[in-house]
Write a protein that binds this DNA or RNA. Sequence first.
DNA 1: CGTGCCCCCTGTCAGC
DNA 2: TGCTGACAGGGGGCAC
Length: 285
Amino acid sequence: MPELPEAETIIRGLQPLTGQRLGTVEVLYPDVVEEGPALRQGAEGSQIVQVHRRGKNVILDLVQGDGARPSLVVNLGMSGRLLLRPLGDPSPPPTHPGLRASVARLDGTPVGELVYHDPRRFGRIRLLSARAFQAWSETLGPEPLSAHFRSVDLEAGLKRSRSPIRSWLLDQRRIAGVGNIYANEALFLAGIHPETPAAEIPSERVPGLHRALKRVLRDAVAAQGTTLRDYRTAQGWEGSYGTALRVYGRENQPCPQCRTPVVRRVFGNRSAFLCPRCQPEPEVP
DNA sequence: CGTGCCCCCTGTCAGC
DNA sequence: TGCTGACAGGGGGCAC
């Protein structure tokens, strides 16, 4: 579910948490929370000093009473939601709450609760020490919307791999935050067939792919993400990028550029969508 | 090490 | 109407 644009939208909606304090933490799905008791102990009573994102992960930086600064790392899996519910919120409570934390101002005034909701329970919540967080973050590739993500580095990375480019883009160690929807959309914009071996993408096409990735991700952030089914913002709203999708989920519908029917192909255990005319099959030597 | 495959889990929907 | 199977946006583990 949530890829970079969805995680980015969620952290923007969670900014009111900055400077507030976590109260009681309840774990309702133990399998979604790593080290449940330790996490509960570590999070309860700590202050949230920053809410940010790394790839598809939502990060809450905390300060504990003893001055330690661990981070809560939330990976939303396929169906995870992080919902900020103010006191007296009239919307119906989440049906599959996995973790619930009360939220208060520093002076103790309760303001609401933060709920992690996840029917499929593919998501994970971990509490990492500052050192462990650093080490984990270094296992992830560059942030594709940052200036550190350069076309020349993308080109160098692609050259070293014979994976199909769609699979390559999904590997979080290469680029952090790209999932199946936006990989397919960017490959369409770049005119590259998803099964093209990474190393066989000609150098002159790499800047186009680099631009396409940035454009798709930026536009999806502006639209508050893509809601196919489960994804919601922290306020419980749907994202609107679904109507902008060019090929993803549009099997047999006309390509927006040339009207050729969009094709679905399954590889790497996942559906790829493409226009067979705009994204020609790679040449097999 | 890089790569591909399987699986974790529940909900929904198409087809019979 | 009700059942069955396919499928879903992620990622970890394992075998090769």
